[in-house]
Design a protein around this nucleic acid. Structure first.
Length: 118
DNA sequence: GGTCTGACCGGCG
DNA sequence: ACGCCGGCCAGAC
């Protein structure tokens, strides 16, 4: 799936998806970020929706930690798109991130802002 | 080939 | 506080 997109982006001169993947791959273990933060870092903070769409296409690719991307308040909105709804939470908990009611505990503390860290 | 739809976000009533 | 709307852009139909 992700390969198909990569192929397409090779044809196009610019791919928003590719940039999203690049940033997503750089998210450190044990940290999380938001769709909006990634979009903002890429210059188009209004395209947060596309970041989610990109994750949808990318999930399945081990190199892309889609589980570390949540919405702006730390809610695991994308959990239903994993193989099982608790897959996302399990992966995060494995990285010492606690989840309560589909929400990242202490979201600000774990938040990784690409614009600030890169 | 127009139209609909998102794993979003900020703003406004 | 809460709900609605518009904008973003790629993919499915």
């Amino acid at each position: 799936m992700a390969k198909r997109i990569k192929l397409k982006s090779a044809i196009k001169t610019y791919s928003f998806f590719d940039d999203v993947f690049e940033v997503a791959k750089l998210i450190p273990k044990g940290r999380v970020t938001s769709y909006g933060a990634i979009a903002a870092y890429l210059g188009t903070k209004m395209s947060a929706r596309m970041v989610g769409w990109a994750m949808n296409v990318a999930h399945g690719d081990e190199k892309i930690p889609a589980h570390r991307v949540v919405n702006r308040i730390g809610l695991l909105t994308g959990k239903h798109h994993f193989e099982t709804p608790n897959e996302m939470q399990k992966k995060l908990e494995r990285e010492k991130i606690k989840i309560v009611k589909d929400k990242v505990v202490d979201f600000e503390r774990h938040f990784w802002d690409p614009a600030r860290e890169l």
